[in-house]
């Protein structure tokens, strides 16, 4: 059922992602003035901190949007993705893990105490969210007995994975927030460290980093649709419309959650992630494995 889109889709995809991220950021800020904010960063002078490692900052700020968009290669709109890679799940995981490097490099590069703290905070965050996250996505893969995203969507023609793997779905949503260091997991760029990893960034560097973060957030949220919410499956409407609707719903849910919860500090969350979420995710995988054996 899944098919690969024509090559020009590779040009359309980044544009579409930017548009979705733009819309989400506008809704979140409850203002239509986002274009002005982007322009402000474009006209801003370049800013270098003393004895900064400019190359690292450049690599970090570039890596974040690049990794986010590359992860979206396997993201199907309806049943078509830019490329339905045979190991799509692993590809997504690999690209999303590049954010670790991106944030840390951006935090280390400017030679500034607060940005250094921000960069290291993300590493601690990664140690907390990554494992339950990987268990959650392998659980979905196990349910479809495939690592291909298209196969995952096909396997949910009858029943969405979110229905019979609710724990994996919940864990995935938490990790989607954490990997995009967004909402309650924004400690790496928190206001208490004056912007953390982003605190010394100005101009285009800042635009790429914060824009890349929004892209990553959108991609991570959108990936929950083929993983757990049946992708383009649904009655009446065309498949692409179902994808858009479900993605919007997930984004809306996450943005609502952000307003309800203060920033989660890793020195508290790590314990929860390892002692509660990881065993829960393993138990969920076991249940799914038993179901798979039985069919």
């Amino acid at each position: 059922m899944a098919e690969t889109a024509p090559l020009w889709a590779a040009v359309v995809l980044p544009v579409a992602l930017v548009l979705v991220a733009w819309a989400a950021a506008s809704v979140d800020a409850r203002s239509a003035g986002l274009g002005r904010a982007v322009l402000r960063l474009l006209v801003q002078q370049r800013r270098l901190t003393r004895a900064a490692d400019v190359l690292l900052v450049r690599v970090g700020t570039t890596l974040l949007p690049v990794a986010a968009v590359l992860a979206a290669v396997v993201l199907p709109l309806g049943f078509r993705s830019v490329s339905d890679l045979p190991d799509g799940i692993v590809w997504f995981n690999a690209m999303e893990a590049l954010a670790w490097a991106a944030v840390w490099l951006t935090g280390w590069g400017p030679n500034s105490a607060l940005s250094l703290i921000g960069g290291y905070r993300f590493l601690a965050q990664g140690l907390a969210y990554e494992l339950p996250h990987m268990l959650a996505i392998t659980t979905a893969a196990l349910g479809a007995e495939s690592l291909r995203v298209g196969a995952l969507v096909d396997a949910q023609a009858g029943l969405w994975f979110a229905v019979w793997m609710p724990v994996a779905f919940g864990v995935y949503l938490l990790s989607a927030l954490a990997m995009a260091f967004w909402g309650p997991f924004d400690q790496p760029v928190g206001t208490d460290v004056a912007g953390g990893a982003a605190s010394e960034l100005a101009g285009v560097d800042r635009l790429l980093f914060l824009g890349g973060r929004w892209l990553l957030f959108v991609v991570a949220a959108a990936f929950s649709v083929p993983l757990f919410l049946g992708g383009g499956q649904g009655p009446f409407l065309p498949a692409w419309a179902w994808t858009v609707l479900k993605t919007a719903a997930v984004l809306g849910l996450l943005m609502w959650a952000r307003r309800r919860v203060p920033t989660v500090r890793m020195e508290r969350y790590v314990e929860l992630a390892w002692v509660v979420l990881t065993p829960l995710a393993v138990a969920q995988a076991l249940v799914v494995a038993v179901v798979v054996l039985g069919r």
Partner: peptide, 23 residues
């Protein structure tokens, strides 16, 4: 299967460079 990935990589890196150029 990997061809579109390469194209996408080129497009995104190009986009980043373009943004720097606009800046």
């Amino acid at each position: 299967a990997w061809e579109p990935v390469a194209v996408l990589l080129a497009v995104v890196v190009g986009g980043v460079l373009l943004l720097h150029g606009v800046g």
